[in-house]
Write a protein that binds this DNA or RNA. Sequence first.
DNA 1: GCAGGTTGCGCAAACGTTTACTTGCGCTCT
DNA 2: AGAGCGCAAGTAAACGTTTGCGCAACCTGC
Lengths: 379, 379
Amino acid sequence: MTTRPRPTQPKKKRLDIRDVARHANVSIATVSRTINRIPTVDKELAKRVWKAIEGLNYYPNTQARALVSGRSRIFGLLISEITNPFFPELIQGFETVAVENGYDIMISSTNHDVARMQTCVRRLLERNVEGVAVMTFGIEAPLLDELASRNVPLVFIDVGPANPHVSTLAVNYLEGIREGVQHLAALTHRDIAFVSGPLVQSSCQRRKEAFLSSLEEVGIVPQPELLLEGDHTLEGGMRAAELLMKLKQLPTAVMCSNDMTAIGVLRTFANAGIRVPADVSVIGFDDIHLAEFVYPPLTTVHMSRTAIARAAFEALRADVENREPTSQERARAIGTKLTVRQSTGFPRGTMENLKPRESSSASPSRVRSPASGVKRSRD
Amino acid sequence: MTTRPRPTQPKKKRLDIRDVARHANVSIATVSRTINRIPTVDKELAKRVWKAIEGLNYYPNTQARALVSGRSRIFGLLISEITNPFFPELIQGFETVAVENGYDIMISSTNHDVARMQTCVRRLLERNVEGVAVMTFGIEAPLLDELASRNVPLVFIDVGPANPHVSTLAVNYLEGIREGVQHLAALTHRDIAFVSGPLVQSSCQRRKEAFLSSLEEVGIVPQPELLLEGDHTLEGGMRAAELLMKLKQLPTAVMCSNDMTAIGVLRTFANAGIRVPADVSVIGFDDIHLAEFVYPPLTTVHMSRTAIARAAFEALRADVENREPTSQERARAIGTKLTVRQSTGFPRGTMENLKPRESSSASPSRVRSPASGVKRSRD
DNA sequence: GCAGGTTGCGCAAACGTTTACTTGCGCTCT
DNA sequence: AGAGCGCAAGTAAACGTTTGCGCAACCTGC
């Protein structure tokens, strides 16, 4: 006789529904129905089945399930760049609500690379995701078609191609941005810069437009040289701030399209000895967790990641479980609102007389970049 | 005749391998072999098949594949908390290398919640992951058993249960931490605090031990009140710093178990008017991207996320493709190394006379925490 | 020219589920 | 009391692949 243990242990296979059926002395159909909580199974039998499941420590094979039922119970989450702190917070919310509802999520980050975006979409399709939340602010149209043509339910932020299976999260940028602008206007700021994100992305466009129209509302005409394009990164914010410092006259406030940009601006100003908010006010957008912990704590427009995550999930779910989504569901509103912290204050000129500081002379010249000579120390 | 379009469009189904076969006029087996690049298929046929695939825009059904082949081509990535910036950077690396090699990844964050960790593991198992990278610094033993007993290849950081399918990434904490301590020692620091992570986690334990032994090397005996336990969050770092400020005597340097902690410490010190590095030096650990952009730029111990990600992936892959991993592969080394930026300098006493600052008078009194009045200075 | 080898394709059996359909049972209504 | 009906459980056919096995066809060597 051979000494190999094969005969006794023919195959070290994973448990299947048949094992459970055998153990509970029922058919596999009954096991399946029990697991899926179909109400027609007898209480008594169900109890036996559950006991067998527990006893064997059985868990179903998702792929077999998915294959036959046609439902993968996976939602895709397409994001730009996971290292942008906005996204982890979003992912966390999305994952939580998905798991609560028995879905798994598949995260794909495009890293702004169009080729990579291609493969991301492909991978999502191959895994048969039941829907995709496109949270990358801005996506290439052909890819969208690829997904849409497969009839994969989609949910977007902002941009809403009106396909049958596409929902849109309508973020009310104006709400919060207007608050921000009015806050600044109330503090008597007039020279307000705006550092946008990449303008190819519609959400960035929308934010900028919200800024411009808010400006108009308070009777300020925008100065072109105060409208900068950043890239939603910390480094981009720093570059923008450097550009601002090269101006003949520094604006008294700068509003940013996201918090990372604002934090970059803050950093560059700090390096240059420009005080915030004493010399210049800064407002961010997103209200990421970090915003509260930079110096000074950032005044920013709050946009709830969990609200977005939940709305996106609900939109997809409604579509999948094809209770025809109401039009209200098709375009869910996400509010934004200003959170005032300590990076905003009266512009320097205004308060000068109130402050016990060295009063500047008649010259309107202001704090400037280190290169130009003037420096001041932090307090 | 009925007017329903059913006969012409019986079912709007997704494309099959059969459709491709029909189109290329071969059997489905040949299509399958072509797709899987089995070398025995005729060049000519293969070309026909590929053309059909392109023409139809076909892509295979991953679940059917997985079901029959027993290979899901998914690796799990178990992390503590996605909002800790360390992890997104790790995820990015892992995703990149996984995708390059035809794998997808499934991310599960435990959020330090043991119940949630339970469901995370369950979800990974149900999806039939081929391996799991356990990057949560610290995991409950029962869950590990759950995974190990299913013979799922595992790779850990630090802790290495010597099961057959378990690999370990051996991070050489000592290397970088010793450098850090010696850097401080060279600057003549003697009172060095250490803010650890949660000590239930082995990697935190290891870091602390590395700190203590490095201290010993330079002949410093650790002072118990300078050994604090944080939680690897920004807030934890702030709390730790507050504790330090309550001490009769502020240490001249504080080393932290990770960068978020260090950034929290920095923040609290800044709020209290304690200058870094003039009044106290701070060293972090991890070298997250943000570290370079805080004020002052953080001196920290670099540990490469991409190196970890790549090593973890390779370990899993070696296991899956069961070329018996060499013992070298079983315990891959990850180096650490100090990156000096601007948060470290000579302790205050030492350099006072060299600095062109307002020379402090006879009084050794110093910047103090707003709350507690007592403070001191050394030497 | 024929036996034996080699090469490459196709047939069909899995993989572990769900679910339409069937069967058997007990109840009710006439 | 018998026919019909509802209900619950079981049988078997999918789902879309991979892959072992058989079998043609073609080559090679004598």
